Amino acid sequence: MTIDLLESLADPAEQPGDRSAGRGDGAAAAFVSAAPRLFAIGMRVLRDVGEAEDVVQETWLRWAGTDRSVVNSPPAFLALTTTRLALNVAQSARKRRETSAGPVLPETPDRAIGPETAAERHDAVESAIRLLLERLTPAERAVYVLRMAFDYPYRRIAEVLHVGEDHARQLLRRARHHLATDRPHPVNTTAHRRLVRTFLAAARTGDLAPLESLLATDLAR
């Protein structure tokens, strides 16, 4: 259970989901009480601290938006939700590029694809990058691209972006939330084209240094 999540639960003004997610019906107290068990479930399934924390965070979002008046056993509900979410993450780990807001890209350059497939892939990347530019801050976008599209470990993300590992995890959680809830903002066409071009080159050649540099530069602006 992360400190930032505990702090958000302690402050009703920052709680996600519907307005009844605060202390009125004991939702926060029930969740905090179950959190250690939920984290343990995530760790047993995923064996990764960051992924387990993400699953616990997502469980809270589900719990905050649930009609708790029909839940007979909050601990059982929370444990079942966490288990299902963790299993979903485990099952989709190899398909992260397909299930994220990012594009569908091969692990290594695929020179056998035809022009039609290449065009479809380019369109998918353009749409995905536009979504990231519309809804995420430069920091959130950088973490999201490196983690979700290229499977970077948090330690490496922290090194590239000069942030702490815990902060990188927090930025990914924020990015996921903003992708699901935020309204789009205008996108700079030049920035969009530059990121698409650099992203595609990284995926095609395997040379990620230019992409790292671009993301870090955007973060510093």
Rank of each mutant, 00 (worst) to 15 (best):
A101G: 14
A101M: 10
G102E: 12
P103H: 11
P103W: 14
L105C: 09
P106Q: 08
P109Y: 11
D110C: 11
D110M: 04
R111Y: 03
I113W: 06
I113R: 15
P115L: 13
P115V: 03
P115S: 14
P115R: 08
E116V: 07
A118I: 07
E120W: 13
R121I: 06
H122V: 07
H122T: 10
H122C: 06
D123M: 14
A124G: 15
A124T: 10
A124H: 15
E126W: 10
S127M: 06
I129L: 13
R130K: 11
E134I: 02
E134R: 12
E134H: 07
E134D: 02
E134A: 11
L136G: 09
T137H: 12
T137S: 15
A139K: 12
E140H: 08
E140V: 10
E140S: 04
E140G: 05
E140F: 06
R141I: 09
R141Q: 11
A142S: 14
V143K: 00
V143F: 05
Y144T: 08
V145T: 12
V145S: 05
L146Q: 14
R147G: 02
R147P: 00
M148T: 04
F150T: 02
D151P: 03
Y152A: 05
P153C: 15
Y154Q: 07
R156F: 07
R156V: 10
I157S: 00
E159A: 02
E159D: 13
V160T: 01
L161K: 11
H162T: 05
